[in-house]
Design a protein around this nucleic acid. Structure first.
Lengths: 342, 342
DNA sequence: GCGTTGGTTGAAACCGGTTTCAGGAGATCA
DNA sequence: TGATCTCCTGAAACCGGTTTCAACCAACGC
């Protein structure tokens, strides 16, 4: 028993606890590792008291080293300023907490290089699994990573990359939007989307919109991206002749913000002059225009929780084939699509 | 030289690199640790190639163990669904990235117990420093923690707890708001705040409001918290007689949301019927009412960056006394406080 | 030719835990 | 009484790195 114990960097270590309790490191380790049935009642009690008295907290890094379990989950978020991402992250965090994991979040700022760097960093911290909201440009790295760790995609998938995916049922959501608009008397629709840069969810929504409009002869539909001089492009749509009342379908929260701002700028009143429905339901939707913006809410909390549960399932090895969960959106009708009385 | 090398858990280790390159672990360690001037040119080159060939990534956990440097920074956020917190976090992350740190974020969900648990967790992961947006109820734990790690508070301070603090100059911001409202002809002011539960920034804003109203005989001022039946309380304010035009001052983004919603509910038009100014500047402020909501924007990015820089200064030991940085707010005038023509 | 010096290198201890393995103390059985 | 079987425990190896320390080699000065 060595009597000289240097408290390293101020923190109590397992060796100090061991010698203070008059037992071996192994016993203390067994105690904190939950192998308590291996210990005699009296020993366990003595260790418990010593730990309490010294305020010992095991060093998770050291534990992870030998054990392979760091209890860390990594999450890669494309844009942390996007409320959708934060909401999903909140769900993931809730689930992590529930299962005793800690979440490490990295924000790529929609930057390819940062995505790469952060993937490497998370790996080097021995996260046990990854939840990825990817830009979709690093199939190689991701495939490589998937061989090492369980990995679940959120919202966005990737061409030629087999992995669990949790997100929205985009086709169904677009159908709900179009159906609702049509039912409310709109005939000339404009899908507003952030730039179609390869982000799969945006592509899917755009594609579903095109397909469904093409299949519906009574409707006309166009697609506008929010880059360039969006207001000017929007104005063109507003002045163009069409088959009937016009409505905008914003493909996500950002598009809703841009659309609403541009419509205001053009002096165009929501509902009175034009219909509006938006994917995502942000907390300010009820405050805008005449009675708020009609929304298709994503179950973000559920998406986050499910993503983590898929990950845990893989960690436990209880799954093999890539699985996909597409949640339905929930329609929340507000003033921007009130029944047209015309 | 041991020829049997089991690739542990699929990842390449320093020993494998060492034996593949025909050098010792020590040399490889020196190479990745940046002590390259200790190595002969040829050796360094050989190691570089081997690392590249094998795709070796050093395990940060293992490095941190002996070295004491994990290059991890912990951040405790009171409410991740609050855009203010996310914006600050974005600043912190930017700065972390710039200095080669990785950020671990924990959300306490405004829960005391979770705050405690997360503080313990972050500590057990050997973060090198902490940025804390605390609830303000755990002076004991925090003091204890401060003895072990550098720690910087964001937005919220704590009674009897000396630490670096980065946030808004609340007194000055309240002065800007009151001055602006008075200048625009408003005389009967209502400060709307989330519940004064001890959160220091809320208290400071409320206190500054009371003080400044008391010192200004031409103004009347009341304070309302957003709990209970807020709309009813707001209605009372609106119908009460006062010394002149009424205006609401929302003490943060949440209060702005609640206030705007209740005003709508009461059929009260912004600007025409009542003035509104809000602390924080959220992206939807321009879209509401007649010309948007006037805002006092916080420099959230700068707050986050500064918080991390203070932390790094402490990590380098180049600071002793607790320091405080109070940023000014920036007034952004919009429709909700247009000049009163009356 | 020999002691010094400085630049490189590897063996081994170490960080703070976990895990294997062997051994000692009782209890049970023949 | 001795053999066997549990149950509990500690020594030591190990995880993947870092760091100390001593040794080696070539060049240098005298």
């Amino acid at each position: 028993m060595n009597s000289i114990l240097l408290p390293s960097r101020g923190r109590v270590t397992i060796s100090e606890v061991a010698s203070a309790a008059g037992v071996s490191k192994a016993s203390v380790s067994r105690y904190i590792g939950g192998d308590r049935q291996l210990l005699a009642e009296a020993t366990a009690e003595r260790i418990a008291q010593t730990i309490e008295r010294l305020g010992f907290r095991p060093n998770q890094m050291a534990r992870g080293l030998k054990r392979g379990r760091t209890r860390l989950i990594g999450m890669l978020v494309a844009d942390i300023l996007n409320p959708y991402s934060v909401a999903v992250m909140h769900g993931v965090e809730t689930a992590c907490q529930r299962h005793g994991y800690t979440l490490v979040v990295c924000n790529t700022n929609r930057d390819d290089e940062q995505e790469c760097r952060h993937l490497a960093a998370l790996q080097s911290y021995n996260v046990e699994g990854l939840i990825v909201n990817t830009l979709g440009h690093h199939a190689g790295e991701l495939k490589d990573l998937q061989n090492r760790l369980p990995l679940v995609l959120v919202d966005r998938q990737m061409e030629g990359f087999e992995a669990d995916l949790v997100g929205l049922d985009n086709t169904q959501a677009v159908r709900q939007a179009i159906d609702h608009l049509q039912q409310r008397g709109y005939r000339d629709l404009l899908l507003v989307s952030e730039p179609l840069d390869g982000t799969s969810s945006r592509q899917e929504r755009a594609q579903a919109f095109r397909t469904q409009i093409a299949a519906n002869p009574s409707l006309k539909g166009r697609l506008l991206e929010t880059n360039g001089d969006f207001t000017a492009k929007l104005k063109t749509f507003l002045t163009e002749p069409g088959p009937g009342p016009k409505a905008v379908f914003a493909a996500n929260g950002m598009a809703a913000l841009t659309s609403t701002a541009s419509l205001r700028e053009l002096g165009c009143r929501l509902f009175e002059d034009i219909g509006l429905i938006a994917l995502d339901d942000l907390d300010w939707y009820p405050l805008v225009g005449n009675g708020g913006i009609t929304a298709l809410a994503q179950p973000t909390e559920a998406i986050g929780i499910t993503a983590l549960e898929y990950l845990l399932a893989r960690l436990n090895g209880s799954r093999s084939a890539a699985q996909r969960m597409a949640f339905p959106a929930e329609l929340r009708i507000r003033g921007s699509t009130q029944p047209r009385i015309s």
